[in-house]
Structures are given as C-alpha cells and as structure tokens.
Simulated scan of single mutants.
Amino acid sequence: MTTIASQVVLHPVVSQSLKLLGTTLGRDKLYRSVQYFARFLAWFLLTRGYKIQAARWNALKSQLALGRKLMRLGKPLEHLQAALRAIQTRADAGEQITAIGRQLAYFGYLTYDGIVWANAVKFFNLSPSTTQKVNKMANRFWLAGILFSITHGLLKAGRLANEAKKLSGSQIWEKSLEVDRDAQLQALAAQRASTRHQFIIDILDVWIPATNVGLVHFNDGILGIFGLITSLLALRQQWFKVTGAKK
C-alpha cells in the first residue's frame, strides 16, 4: 500500500503539476479555467431551471474572479515596465506602437481592476454609480489591450512570413551557411507558432470585455466557453514553459 501511495504521490506528473502551481501564472490560469467553466455551467443550469445549483456555480465564479484580482495587484507595474522596454527597443514602427499601446492598456485595466477589488472587499466604499463607471473603464482598457494585441499579432505575423519567404527562396552555396539558414527558419517557425497561439487567445477573449461594455451581447454560455478555451491554452503554454516538456 505504501509503495502504491509513493508511486502516486511521487509520480512525475504530480511533481510537474506542483511545479506549475508553484507559479503565480500557473495558479491564475487554473483558477481562470474553473471560473469560466463555472460561468458556462451556471448559465447552462439556469436555462434548464436549476436555480439553486446555478447559484452555487455563480458563487464559485464570483469568488474565483475576486481572488484572481487579488493575485494581480502588482501586475500594473509589470506592464508599465514592459511598455518602457518596448519604447527603448528597436523594432518595426507598427509593432512597437501596438506593443506599447497594449502594455499601457493592460496597465490601465489592472489598475482599475485593483480598485474594483478594493471596493469589493470593503477596503473603501464606492457608490453604485461610481462602481459601475470603474468597472466599465476597466473593461474598456481590457478591450483596448486585446485589440492592440490582435493588431500587433497581425503585423508581426506578416513580417515573419515575409522573412521566412525570403530565407526559403535564397540560394546557399556553402554548407555552413545552409545550416545557419535552417536554424533561422526554425527560429522564425517558433515565433510564428507563438504569434498564432496568442492571436487565437486574443480573438476569443476580445468578446468578453466587448460584451461587458455593451458593444456585443453574447450570453454567459458563449463567454464561458471562450474563456475556458483561452484559459486552457494559456495553462498548457505555461505547463511547457515550467516543466520543460516538449510540445
């Protein structure tokens, strides 16, 4: 029995999972996955008339959302630093502008999100109208950040595609140069894959703040599924990064 318990508790997957959950980002993406699954399930149960069961999942969704706000309290400064680094980095003008815009928008979003959290835990009390305005401003910044990210992804994807095309079409006469070109093509392929991955996440996530500010009107079932998919994609990416596993 002890041997079986040891094999389960000390299994490499368990160790890797603990390593993943030892990171703030890993925990955040796991909580976000459960949060948006709860959002979908609460909507699903409510449409079937199961109000009591739906209320339980709604409560779980709300508490996870509140807990994630607490974990993100220091992140506005991270995005501000990233914006300053983007200003100092030499890059394509369009990519640089959108990168700076994205980081500044996320800085604004998370700053207002922190105010929402402080009001929710009664650290200070805002009037209902002010709370609504702060929530809406946070979602506007979130939406702007995702739109900047989508634009950045499109510009970067186009540039990387052109660079890969030029490298593939170039004629190499020396073996050493051919090896170097293949290495560059592999690096470009990895960057293109990463850009596509982020684009998929952005194109699904964008509808959440867009709905919150009233630009579109998707129900909680659709938004829950979108949020669950993007959370699992981000969690998977963090898994590979932390554990060193091959994709």
Rank of each mutant, 00 (worst) to 15 (best):
A183M: 14
K75D: 08
R27K: 13
T195L: 01
Q53T: 11
S17H: 03
Q238Y: 03
N58E: 13
L185F: 03
H79M: 09
L167G: 09
A210E: 06
L154M: 08
T2H: 11
W57A: 10
Y36Q: 05
A190H: 12
R236P: 03
Q7P: 01
G101I: 02
N125A: 07
G227E: 01
K75P: 05
R72Q: 05
A120L: 05
Q191T: 04
Q184V: 02
N219V: 03
P209Y: 01
R39T: 11
K122H: 08
L73K: 02
T211Y: 06
W142L: 04
G108H: 03
I87S: 06
K19H: 07
E174D: 15
K61V: 05
A190D: 11
W239N: 04
S6K: 13
L155E: 00
Q35V: 10
S194E: 14
V216N: 03
F240H: 08
T111A: 04
L235N: 11
N125I: 08
Q171Y: 12
A65R: 14
K136D: 09
D205T: 00
L30S: 13
L41K: 12
L60Q: 15
G26C: 00
T211Q: 06
K69W: 05
K175P: 07
T47V: 14
Q238G: 07
S231K: 02
I52N: 13
N212D: 13
A161M: 12
G74T: 07
I222L: 15
A118Q: 08
G74V: 01
R181V: 11
A54R: 06
Q191G: 09
V179M: 08
G101T: 06
L143C: 04
Q63C: 01
I222Y: 09
T3Y: 10
K122I: 02
